[in-house]
């Protein structure tokens, strides 16, 4: 349904936008005056709400055409990219973020944090590209067997 798609796209844009703000802060843009912890606490709660909305809408879209999506390479790569984004985020919060007090404000983030931020941006751009590419590539699925109960003789 167009409404479900619109919600999926709007929520996805919110996820990317809020994550991008966090990632850019890790990279030192526009500066390091704003505490990393504050940026994270302000942005990531919006991220999670938007992600839940996007996931729900995406699941509804998937359920209408599951067989085709599962067989679509762009869809599979998108799921892989989302997994990569999750792993990147988990590693960042499990290790690098632990000593955030040392670089919370007015100090450049450590290399590991900057790599996590740059990787996150790269992965989420890939997610968006792949998500759009699904629409161009899922096409017609002729592999589903024909229902054997249909009587084709008249």
């Amino acid at each position: 349904m167009p409404v479900i798609e619109a919600i999926h796209v709007l929520a996805g844009a919110t996820v990317f936008g809020t994550i991008l703000i966090v990632d850019l802060r890790l990279l030192g843009f526009p500066d390091t005056r704003r505490p990393v912890t504050r940026v994270c606490s302000e942005m990531l709660r919006i991220t999670w709400i938007a992600f839940a909305v996007s996931l729900t809408a995406g699941a509804l879209m998937f359920s209408a055409n599951a067989h085709t999506y599962v067989g679509n390479t762009a869809f599979r790569l998108k799921m892989l990219a989302l997994l990569g984004a999750g792993v990147n985020m988990a590693l960042f919060h499990a290790f690098t973020f632990r000593n955030v007090k040392a670089w919370d404000q007015n100090a450049p983030a450590p290399l590991a944090a900057r790599i996590a931020g740059a990787t996150s941006i790269l992965i989420w751009v890939c997610v968006i590209f792949l998500a759009r590419w699904i629409g161009f590539t899922k096409g017609f699925d002729f592999k589903i067997p024909v229902n054997t109960h249909i009587n084709f003789q008249f």
């Binding site: 798609e5 879209m61 055409n65 629409g135 249909i150 084709f152 008249f154």
Partner: peptide, 27 residues
């Protein structure tokens, strides 16, 4: 044609079908 499957894709509904022969007795 004779419908074999309808794929209710959100963007474009798709009808898979078997085209009928000109005599309309079979596909």
């Amino acid at each position: 044609g004779v419908v074999t499957r309808v794929n209710p894709d959100a963007n474009h509904l798709q009808i898979f079908f078997a085209p009928m022969q000109e005599n309309r007795k079979n596909v």
